[in-house]
Nucleic acid binder design. Structure first.
Lengths: 198, 198
DNA sequence: GTGCGACTGGGACGACCGTCCCACTTCAGT
DNA sequence: ACTGAAGTGGGACGGTCGTCCCAGTCGCAC
């Protein structure tokens, strides 16, 4: 194995861990499985990280920080709010269908964090990030449609996050594209009714 | 230990397993932890069950079959659909706040089932049950409010399940009663707009 | 080139896991 | 009372886990 500074090894191990968690679940993300995925020896693991817990914590932080705007509204002139929101949710659905393992991994990491008091803040940070992204999307969408939210946008954002979570869970279980699209349509419709023309 | 027929031991072990999973998560639900919770010896476990997997499968089936109508609409004469749905969702929220570990366990069991092809149908059955319960509630609510659903009730039920999942996840992470109530209110509002006066 | 700190590999550790074995006890049917 | 089946207890098995140790190797500063 080539000589690699510990800081780079940390990154490589986090990436390998994400792949293992996505593919096999967090329960299977053992130090040995992660190290094999990264093509390293076990000793390199504990040279870069004090413990497996430390890596998992960094994995969660990394993956949350990297979380992209998955539901960027696709602003097409002339569309009303409902249409903009629906296309955004459908875009998220495509993202989910393209890489279901990743979203499943995110859910597992959340639940993992919820199981210990020290890690709970990581889950809170994850959902704060989700809320921020949702808020941003909602502002763009309302602006493009010439509407204003009847309730504080943060509150609407919580609803959108809740909807997205539910959509994710439902699709992961049923893998029913048509049903998920119907949910997305209904969600867009429901959300759009929470705004008034400006 | 008193002599207990194997069939009763199976029940006792499933109950003990549910308590362990709720309290500590499925990863900690080892044969030894379950047996200790049930006050038995390890041998009794493998006398009643061939394997831990067999018990987990039965645990999921049991807990799904037992799933109660958590969001029974509280029909008070004179309430409109939005109010009926909101009180139902708030009732669910109280149920969640009263026993958060149980809902967290349900989520974990779903994810656990999703991780293997053989167990996937258990998760599907779980969500089919959720959808049935939601459908039933929605029919009662619309009927009491003198409204009809604009879309097939099964479709609206999917939305309600998705909303409930999202609500659950959000509250489990933030433990913010006020925010959750706002989400419930918004959800009820959104759902109520999916029906028309009869 | 020499030394020293950074990095590597393999093997080992104790703990815990699911499962199994076997001698033993209890009980129901006769 | 006798017997066979049902149920019990404790200890042991092989395997995997996270972690650690340590001898060895590399690369850079001097």
């Amino acid at each position: 194995m080539a000589r690699i500074p510990a800081s780079e090894r940390r990154n490589a191990l986090v990436e390998a861990a994400l792949r293992v968690v996505s593919r096999q679940g967090i329960a299977q993300a053992t130090t040995r499985a992660i190290v094999a995925e990264a093509g390293m020896s076990l000793a390199s693991f504990h040279y870069a990280f004090d413990s497996r817990d430390e890596l998992i914590d960094e994995l969660i932080a990394t993956v949350v920080a990297r979380e992209q705007q998955a539901v960027i509204p696709d602003v097409v002139p002339g569309q009303d709010l409902r249409q903009i929101l629906e296309s955004g949710l459908l875009r998220y659905l495509e993202h989910l269908e393209a890489d279901p393992d990743h979203e499943q991994a995110m859910l597992e990491l959340t639940q993992y964090a919820l199981r210990s008091a020290e890690r709970h803040p990581l889950a809170v940070a994850q959902y704060r990030r989700y809320a921020e992204l949702a808020e941003h999307s909602l502002e763009i969408a309302a602006d493009a449609a010439g509407t204003t939210w009847r309730r504080p946008v943060a509150e609407v954002a919580h609803v959108l996050v809740a909807f997205t979570d539910g959509l994710t869970l439902t699709w992961l279980v049923d893998r029913d594209d048509a049903a998920a699209r119907a949910v997305a349509r209904a969600a867009a419709d429901a959300l759009s009714r929470m705004a008034d023309p400006r």
